[in-house]
Nucleic acid binder design. Structure first.
Lengths: 182, 182
DNA sequence: TTCTGTGAATAGGTTCACAGCT
DNA sequence: AGCTGTGAACCTATTCACAGAA
C-alpha cells in the first residue's frame, strides 16, 4: 500500500512536517503511526474536505485574457470546476465562440444565474466595473467570488471573496529585490 | 493638501486602521497627527519602499496564456515592470511576434540573462519543466522568480520565489462553499 | 478635536518534543 | 524503530487604547 509520511508531504508542499500533521489533525486522524498516510485514503478525504467531489458551476464575467486562460487551463475542469458561462459588455465580444461557450451579454448574468445556479462567479472585468458585477452576482445568489480586478470588493458577510492581484504579487517581488542586502 | 486617514486606507485595502498605522510605522512616521497622511508624500515613500521607482527587467519563460496576459496588462508596465523578453520551447511559437517582442528559443535564456541582466524571471511553463527553467534562471543570476506553474520550486535561499496557483485559489473557494453552514 | 504612533494585551499560528500506536 | 497526533512552549501578528502632536 502506497503511503506518504508527513516529512514527504512537507517536502512537496514547501512546509514542515509538524505543520502538515497539525493541519491534517484539525479534520481528523487520517494516518497510521509508524507508517504514514495512505495516499489513496488521504486523497479521498481531502477531496471531501475541499468539496472537490462536487462539480462547481463557474461563470466568468469579462471575456478577456484572464477568463480565456481559465477556460483553456486543463487542470481546471479536471478539479471539478465547470465553466458554465462567460459574459462580456463589449458588443464585439458578445456572441463570439469560446471553445464550446458562446460569450453572452453581461446584462443577462443576473437572470441566468438565478436559472442556471452558478456556484462561483469570476470577476475578470476592469476595476471600475468590478463592484457592479459583484453586486449583480450577489443579488442573483452567487455566494463565492474569485476577483481578478485590482480593487477591494464589498459583499455581505456570507459571500466568500478571494482577490488575486497579479500586480501586487510582482510588487512583493520588487520589495524583496529593493530591500535585500547585497 | 490632499490627505487620507488610516481609516480611509483601511476601507480601501480591506483591513483595519490600526493595521495600517502599524504597518506604515515600521518604515517611519509619514503621517501628521490630527490630519492623516499626505497622499502625494505617502505615494512617493511607498514607491521607494516597494522599489517601484526602479524599472525592473522581466523575462517570461513560456509564451502561453499567462505570459500573454501579463504582456498585455497595461497596469503592469505602468508600475515599472518592463517585459524585456519572452521564451518558449515550442518551435511553432519561437520567432512569432508578440507585440514588440519576438518570442525566443528558451535555450537562449541562460546566455541572454547574463547579458541583458533580467531582474525578475516569470515561470509560465508546464509543471514538469518548471524546475529546470528555475535552475537556468538562478544559474544566470536572476534572484527573483514569479512562478505560475503548479509545483513547488527549489532554489537557493537568496532567491525570492512567489508562487501563484490559480487552481489552489479556486480550491479555497470550494472549501469555503463545502464547509459553510447552511 | 482629530488622528497618528506605539507600548501593552491579546489572539493566532508555528515549532518542539514526546507519548503511544503499528 | 518509525511516524502520527497533540499538549505545551514559543513566536509573530493583530487589536486595543491612549498619550501627544497638529
Amino acid at each position: 500500500m502506497a503511503t506518504v509520511s508527513s516529512v514527504d508531504l512537507a517536502g512537496l508542499g514547501g512546509t514542515t512536517s509538524a505543520q502538515v500533521r497539525k493541519d491534517l489533525s484539525i479534520f481528523g486522524s487520517f494516518g497510521k503511526r509508524g507508517l504514514g498516510y495512505s495516499v489513496a485514503d488521504l486523497t479521498a478525504r481531502l477531496r471531501g474536505i475541499l468539496g472537490l467531489e462536487h462539480i462547481w458551476r463557474v461563470c466568468i464575467a469579462g471575456a478577456g485574457r484572464i477568463g480565456s486562460a481559465l477556460v483553456r487551463y486543463p487542470g481546471f475542469a479536471a478539479r471539478g470546476f465547470h465553466i458554465a458561462a462567460a459574459y462580456d459588455a463589449d458588443p464585439e465580444r458578445i456572441g463570439s465562440q469560446w471553445g464550446e461557450l458562446r460569450v453572452r451579454d453581461i446584462r443577462e448574468l443576473g437572470s441566468d444565474a438565478a436559472r442556471e445556479r452558478f456556484d462561483i462567479g469570476v470577476i475578470a472585468v476592469p476595476a471600475d466595473a468590478a463592484q457592479h458585477v459583484a453586486d449583480v452576482m450577489v443579488a442573483s445568489g452567487i455566494s463565492a467570488i474569485m476577483n481578478f480586478a485590482p480593487v477591494q470588493i464589498a459583499t455581505p458577510p456570507q459571500v466568500v471573496v478571494r482577490t488575486v492581484n497579479m500586480v501586487l504579487e510582482f510588487e512583493a517581488l520588487s520589495f524583496a529585490l529593493a530591500n535585500r542586502e547585497k
